[in-house]
């Protein structure tokens, strides 16, 4: 495609914002109140895991795997793919992330390494944002709560919450779980930019937030090892 530079995000947008938000509304109606189960359940697991409750640490990554699989299957594959062909590939990436989460959960609870305080608190803040605040972002654009995007149901809050938890719990192989949520955030940012939706700021800012925390945490690790 020699003329690729002539394309803009809007050229790849195949549907109108009205179609998209009606789709989310109808999806939420189909599954209500599963949204509450996902959010409350994951919040409980995260809180208990942070208090070192063994059972919560064991089920943390499998619980994320359930959320990724559900949003991939019910939203991306069954509902979003018919109106945007790129969603099929996104769903496959989400299923791959599900498999990675399950694979790495095998050793994750034994594999946790210490992280800097900044990174831990930053990651927890991002996770809580994805879990508790993200569903209400639509209100800023005067959209109904019926079109709220909840963790486990929709890709954006699922990816953002996952990124937050991964930042807070550095493990030896957990970096393998970062690329797909980061790529999704980039893709989502492009879609929302094409829709001229201010919500595009959220996934894009999440990428930068993760990058900053990773870089600062790496620098502080290097610094502390030099001091030793």
């Amino acid at each position: 495609m020699s003329d690729w530079w002539t394309y803009t995000p809007a050229d790849f947008l195949m549907f109108s914002p009205r179609v998209y938000f009606r789709l989310v509304e109808r999806y939420n109606q189909d599954f209500w109140p599963l949204q509450l189960v996902f959010v409350a359940g994951m919040l409980a697991i995260m809180v208990l895991a942070s208090k070192q409750v063994r059972f919560a640490k064991v089920v943390l990554l499998p619980a994320f795997a359930v959320a990724w699989a559900f949003s991939a299957w019910q939203f991306l594959w069954l509902r979003f793919a018919p109106i945007t062909w790129g969603a099929t590939y996104a769903a496959m990436a989400f299923f791959l992330q599900t498999a990675l989460l399950l694979l790495l959960s095998w050793r994750a609870s034994h594999d946790i390494l210490a992280v800097s305080r900044w990174r831990r608190y930053g990651g927890m803040a991002l996770a809580l944002f994805g879990l508790l605040l993200h569903p209400f972002l639509g209100l800023l654009a005067a959209r109904s709560l019926a079109a709220a995007e909840a963790f486990g149901m929709m890709p954006d809050p699922t990816a953002i919450t996952t990124l937050g938890v991964l930042l807070a719990m550095r493990g030896r192989h957990l970096w393998l779980l970062l690329p797909i949520p980061l790529l999704w955030c980039a893709f989502s940012g492009l879609i929302l930019t094409g829709m001229e939706d201010l919500g595009a700021v959220v996934p894009i800012a999440s990428i930068f937030f993760v990058a900053v925390l990773l870089l600062t945490s790496r620098r502080s690790r290097t610094h502390s090892s030099e001091e030793q």
Partner: peptide
């Protein structure tokens, strides 16, 4: 029909 008719299975649309 580009964009305008891409309404999925939404019966209203």
């Amino acid at each position: 029909t580009w964009i305008t008719f891409n309404v999925g299975d939404d019966p209203v649309l």
